[in-house]
Design a protein around this nucleic acid. Structure first.
Length: 412
DNA sequence: AACGCTTACAACCGCAGAAAC
DNA sequence: CGTTTCTGCGGTTGTAAGCGT
C-alpha cells in the first residue's frame, strides 16, 4: 500500500505534508484529537497536533480506518445484494450506498465494486443477477426517479434526468448529435457508466404494477394515457412525480440515527425492503456536542462470541456454496464464485494495547476476527510502517473506551 | 525459486458544493 | 455579493499479497 512513502507534498494549506501510509504515531495523534474535539475541522488537526497531514487526509484516515464501529472484512451476502440493488438504481453513488451499509465506507464499497466489475466485465458476465434486474425493473416501471430531489425536481447535477419511455423505461437518453449533425452511434460514456443497469435493461419487458397485491404484469402496449396504471403521465422526463429522497447526502462517515429511516428516499426504502440491514445500532450513542461522532455507551458493547453464533452477525459467506444463491434458491454465479478469502494476516492486539498502555487482555481475543463478521482474517494495511490492521484495531479499541461528554465537548 | 498476473485496498487527486468571511 | 476555506465525493493510482506457471 505504500505510496512513495516518506515523500512530501506541497498543498493542502501550504507547507510540506507527509504522504503515504499512516504510522501508528500519526493515527494516535489523529485519534487523540478527535476524542478531544470531535470530527470535523480537519485542518485544525495539523495546527493543533503537529501532524504533517492535510485535512483531507486526516478526514479520510478517520472515516475509513479509525472511526468507531467500522466494519471490516468481507462483505456478507446481504451486503453484496444491497450493494448490487442500490448500485443498479443510483449508480456510482458510493456514499449513498454506504449509508445503507452500517460500518462500511464508501471507499470500501467502491473498491469492492470496481474489482468485481472488472472481473465480471472481463468474463463477459452481466453485472447484476436477474432477480435484482427484475426488482429494479419493477421500481422503474413505477417511475421512481432516484435522482429527483426532495421537491420532486430532477437534480440539476449529473447524471442527467432520464427520459421515460413507457415502452422501454430503461431507454437511454437520445444520442447526442455530433458537431457534424449526425447522432453519435453510441451513448455517452457518462450515461453508460452512471446507469450500468440501464445499459443491460435495454429492451427488457416492461412491467406495470397495478397494485401492491397483484403480481406484476408485463406490458407491451404503448401507454400514453394520464397514468391510470402508473399514477402519472405516460411520458415523463424531468417532470417525474416527486420522489422523496434525502435532500442532502449523508457523509460517508455519518450514521443514520433515525429509527424510521427518515432521510432515506422512497426508492431506497423500497430497495431496503424486508431484508434490509439493521440501521439502528442500539449500542451507539450520539454525542450532541460532537456532531456526527458516535461512540458505544460504556459497558454496552456486546462483544461477539467467536464461534457461538450469536455474535457472528453476518458471515454467511462461508456457508455458501459457490454458484448458489441462497436467498432465492436459483443458481446464479454473481457473487459467491467471485468471493475470495481475505488474504492478509490477522491483526495482533499488541500494537493497539501498547499504544494506550492497556494490558492486552483488555481487548477480547476474538474481537477482531468476530467483529469483521467473518472467520477469515480481516484484511488491512500492509505497509511496513503502519501495523497491519492498526486502523481497525484503533477504531475497535476506541469504541471500547468510555467517553466523557464534558471531556470531549466540541468547544472544549 | 523466479516470474508475471490478478486481486484487494489504502491513499491521493481533482472537482464541486457548502459554509465562513 | 464575491472570495476564501472547508468538506465530501467519486475517480484513479500504486503496491503488497496471493496465485498460477
Amino acid at each position: 500500500m505504500a505510496r512513495s512513502g516518506g515523500g512530501g507534498v506541497e498543498g493542502c494549506g501550504g507547507g510540506v505534508l507527509k504522504k503515504g501510509p499512516w504510522t501508528q504515531a500519526e493515527d494516535k495523534l489523529l485519534v487523540d484529537h478527535v476524542r478531544r474535539h470531535g470530527e470535523g475541522n480537519w485542518n485544525a488537526v495539523r495546527r493543533e497536533t503537529g501532524l504533517q497531514r492535510c485535512g483531507k487526509s486526516c478526514r479520510l484516515r478517520w472515516a475509513n480506518h479509525l472511526r468507531p464501529n467500522l466494519r471490516k472484512g468481507p462483505f456478507s451476502p446481504e451486503e453484496e445484494r444491497q450493494i448490487l440493488r442500490l448500485h443498479g438504481l443510483i449508480g456510482n453513488k458510493w456514499a449513498r450506498i454506504s449509508s445503507h451499509l452500517p460500518g462500511r465506507t464508501d471507499n470500501e464499497i467502491k473498491n469492492y465494486w470496481n474489482t468485481r466489475l472488472k472481473r465480471r466485465q472481463r468474463a463477459g458476465l452481466p453485472l447484476y443477477p436477474p432477480d435484482i434486474e427484475r426488482e429494479i425493473a419493477l421500481l422503474r416501471a413505477q417511475n421512481i426517479n432516484p435522482f429527483a430531489d426532495a421537491d420532486g425536481n430532477a437534480n440539476s447535477g449529473l447524471p442527467p434526468p432520464l427520459l421515460y419511455d413507457a415502452n422501454n423505461p430503461f431507454a437511454l437518453p437520445p444520442a447526442v448529435p455530433s458537431p457534424s449533425g449526425s447522432a453519435t452511434a453510441s451513448h455517452s460514456p457518462l450515461i453508460n457508466q452512471s446507469y450500468p443497469l440501464l445499459n443491460q435493461m435495454q429492451g427488457m419487458p416492461v412491467f406495470h404494477l397495478a397494485s401492491s397485491q397483484q403480481s406484476p404484469q408485463p406490458v407491451f402496449h404503448h401507454h400514453q394515457d394520464n397514468g391510470a396504471a402508473l399514477g402519472h403521465g405516460g411520458f415523463v422526463s424531468s417532470g417525474l412525480p416527486p420522489l422523496p429522497t434525502r435532500a442532502h447526502e449523508l457523509p460517508s462517515n455519518q450514521f443514520d440515527t433515525s429509527s424510521s429511516g427518515g432521510g432515506a428516499g422512497l426508492l431506497e426504502s423500497l430497495l431496503l425492503g424486508d431484508d434490509h440491514l439493521p440501521r439502528h445500532i442500539p449500542t451507539m450513542v450520539k454525542v450532541n456536542s460532537m456532531p456526527a461522532l458516535t461512540y458505544r455507551e460504556p459497558g454496552s458493547c456486546r462483544l461477539p462470541v467467536h464461534g457461538a453464533g450469536a455474535g457472528s452477525d453476518s458471515d454467511e459467506t462461508s456457508h455458501c456454496l459457490p454458484g448458489e444463491d441462497m436467498h432465492h434458491g436459483a443458481k446464479w454465479n454473481f457473487t459467491y464464485e467471485d468471493f475470495k478469502p481475505a488474504k492478509r494476516r490477522t491483526p495482533s492486539e499488541a500494537g493497539i494495547s501498547d499504544m494506550f498502555g492497556v494490558a492486552p487482555g483488555f481487548i477480547p481475543g476474538d474481537w477482531f476476527s468476530a467483529c469483521g463478521g467473518s472467520t477469515a482474517p480481516s484484511p488491512g494495511p500492509s505497509s511496513a510502517v503502519t501495523d497491519d490492521e492498526f486502523g481497525l484495531e484503533m477504531q475497535q479499541f476506541m469504541s471500547l473506551l468510555p467517553l466523557s461528554i464534558d471531556e470531549h465537548s466540541w468547544n472544549a
